[in-house]
Amino acid sequence: MKIEPQHVVSLTYDLYVKKEDGTEGLQESATQEQPLTFLFGAGQMIPKFEEELSNLSTGDTYDFRITASEGYGEFDEEAVANLPLEMFQGTDVPQVGEVLPLQDNNGNRFQGQVVSVTEDSVIVDLNHPMAGQDLHFKGEILNVRPATPEELAHGHAHGPDGHHAH
């Protein structure tokens, strides 16, 4: 079956990104035992990722690259926040490298990685961890099926066989 909007896709992938020495290294994977399953066309994936998959069918393999600007965006030097240390009263001061769940004044949730801690503030990088990275995906389409009415109503896939996994 061919991948189309309102279909649930299960696939494997290996994601490679450039390391500091210029070679590509494996960043993350989805295996046949634990595939990535998603509702195609629901806006959950990078648009370019879906575009690259759009003509494939069950059993097809793929190998494509997505530039940083088409993936998670270029690294933004301005996307660094200076949080007052008082925000962390009553909790442990975050460590460099720690990822903090944050929320802006509009209630939008996002994550920031602590880049440094000073006497009076915590400096957090709000860029996506893969911002500025070109992405290289390789994998195989394991299954394509029409989404159920419930999945379409909820806007996401419900487990590999179409049911909630509780």
Rank of each mutant, 00 (worst) to 15 (best):
G43T: 05
L36T: 03
Q111N: 14
Q89R: 14
P146Q: 13
E52P: 08
P94Y: 06
D104K: 01
Y72S: 04
K2F: 12
A30C: 05
S57M: 07
F40S: 09
H156M: 14
A30G: 11
E140R: 13
H158I: 09
V99E: 12
A165E: 15
G59S: 07
L11M: 15
D60I: 02
E33P: 00
V96I: 15
P160L: 15
N55H: 12
G22P: 00
G112V: 04
P146Y: 09
A131P: 01
G22H: 04
R109V: 06
A131F: 06
L126F: 02
V117E: 08
Q113P: 02
V17R: 01
M87G: 08
Q133P: 02
T23D: 12
F49Y: 15
M130I: 04
G107D: 02
M1R: 10
V115L: 10
G155M: 10
S116R: 15
A42E: 07
Y72T: 01
E74N: 12
L85C: 03
E98W: 00
G107F: 00
P5F: 08
E28M: 13
G97E: 09
S69P: 03
L83K: 08
E150Q: 14
M87A: 05
I46E: 01
H7T: 15
H136W: 15
T148D: 07
E33M: 02
E28P: 01
H166A: 11
V8W: 01
A153Q: 14
Q111I: 05
H163T: 13
K48M: 11
V124C: 08
N143C: 08
A147P: 09
H163I: 07
G73M: 06
H166Y: 10
L100D: 09
I46K: 03
T23L: 09
D21T: 03
P129D: 09
E151L: 11
A79Y: 00
Y13R: 13
V114H: 08
Q32D: 09
L53F: 00
Q111S: 12
L102C: 04
M87E: 13
D104Y: 04
I141K: 03
V96K: 15
L36D: 14
P35W: 00
D120A: 13
E150K: 14
S69F: 03
D76C: 00
Q103R: 12
T91V: 12
V93Q: 08
T31F: 05
E70G: 01
G132N: 08
G25V: 07
E150L: 15
D161R: 13
G132W: 02
N108H: 09
L56K: 12
A79T: 06
S57D: 10
H154V: 11
V80R: 10
L39I: 08
Q89V: 07
L56T: 00
K19W: 06
I123G: 01
E98D: 13
L36N: 11
Q27M: 11
G25C: 07
A157P: 05
P146T: 12
L15D: 06
P35D: 01
T37P: 00
G71K: 03
G159R: 11
E20P: 05
H128D: 12
Q113T: 15
